[in-house]
């Protein structure tokens, strides 16, 4: 039972990270209709920038994540302008390859700046909490709490704020939205920036319990794609449910079956779900 509680919290913390990363990706898909394969690289850059501000410059942890997130927002906007905007009328094959090109570039850049060695980011948040007999590190509790707060803020932003509503409007009907005066270009930039910002928060949270390396985004990338497809492309609730579900499935199968199955479970679940419901769990009306 202690093991179960322990793994449940581990799964929840992992789920928080998956969610933050997946929501950005699914938003980008909803607005730009492109699978952004460079998302993992943005996550990696976010982690390194957080590391840079925390360790090299010496600003406090939360501020470091904040500054890095804002910088990544700019990187996201730049990516939209330089890469995805010129391709807005191309089929998604082109986006994918362009994104792979961007990913190669970001990884090589990070290696050129910070080197190939693993880096460790020390967190100011230390100590353990004892919950029902299980030892849970404070960092994991922070991850879960921050993820929930950020998700709530995001929901408020999209549903209530003017800028956020433009995102939803474009997602629902691109032509209609431009007719009422929403600029799709601006919204595309905003969305990509936002997705990079969310990825940075995820990276900043998870970095202290793992290591930084230029390829740290690769493993996350595939899983996050599985999550947003599982939840239904462009669906926010889908990304949230998918993120937590897959994370918990992953830790639990790794615990009770084997680590190999744990690694593959995301994809097995994906194949099974899509075989039954080819458009994912939370389908939105797909518009062209």
């Amino acid at each position: 039972m202690t093991l179960f509680i322990q793994q449940l919290f581990n799964g929840l913390a992992l789920g928080g990270v998956y969610c933050l990363a997946a929501i950005g990706l699914t938003l980008v898909f909803g607005v730009l209709r492109i699978p952004n394969l460079a998302h993992g690289a943005l996550y990696m850059l976010g982690a390194y920038l957080t590391y840079f501000f925390l360790t090299t410059i010496g600003v406090p942890y939360i501020a470091a994540i904040g500054i890095a997130a804002i910088m990544l927002f700019v990187v996201g906007v730049g990516l939209e302008r330089l890469v995805f905007h010129p391709l807005r009328n191309s089929p998604h094959t082109h986006h994918m390859i362009a994104a792979v090109g961007a990913m190669f570039f970001f990884q090589a850049l990070a290696q050129a700046i910070w080197g190939a060695d693993f880096r460790r980011m020390d967190t100011p948040i230390t100590g353990e909490l004892r919950i029902l007999g299980a030892e849970i590190s404070a960092q994991r509790i922070v991850i879960i709490v921050v993820a929930v707060i950020v998700l709530a803020l995001l929901a408020w932003f999209i549903k209530r704020s003017i800028h956020g509503q433009t995102i939803e409007a474009i997602e629902q009907d691109r032509v209609g939205a431009s007719l009422v005066g929403i600029n799709p270009s601006m919204v595309s930039m905003l969305t990509l920036g936002l997705s990079a910002l969310l990825a940075t928060i995820a990276a900043g949270l998870v970095a202290p319990i793992n290591l930084l390396s230029p390829t740290m985004g690769d493993a996350l990338n595939l899983k996050v794609f599985a999550i947003i497809i599982l939840g239904g492309l462009g669906s926010l609730p889908g990304a949230i449910v998918g993120g937590f579900a897959l994370a918990i499935a992953e830790t639990m199968t790794a615990t009770y079956i084997s680590s190999g199955v744990g690694e593959a479970v995301a994809f097995i679940v994906l194949v099974a779900v899509l075989a039954i419901k080819p458009t994912g769990l939370f389908t939105k009306a797909v518009q062209r």
Binding site: L3, Q7, N10, G11, I209, T255
Partner: peptide, 23 residues
């Protein structure tokens, strides 16, 4: 005990596998 090998390169959080091994 059972083989709890994990892929060090792709696991985002080592707490899970460690808890399992310690069980």
């Amino acid at each position: 005990g059972g083989d709890n090998s994990v892929d060090y390169a792709t696991v985002s959080d080592f707490a899970g596998p460690v808890s399992k091994a310690l069980a």
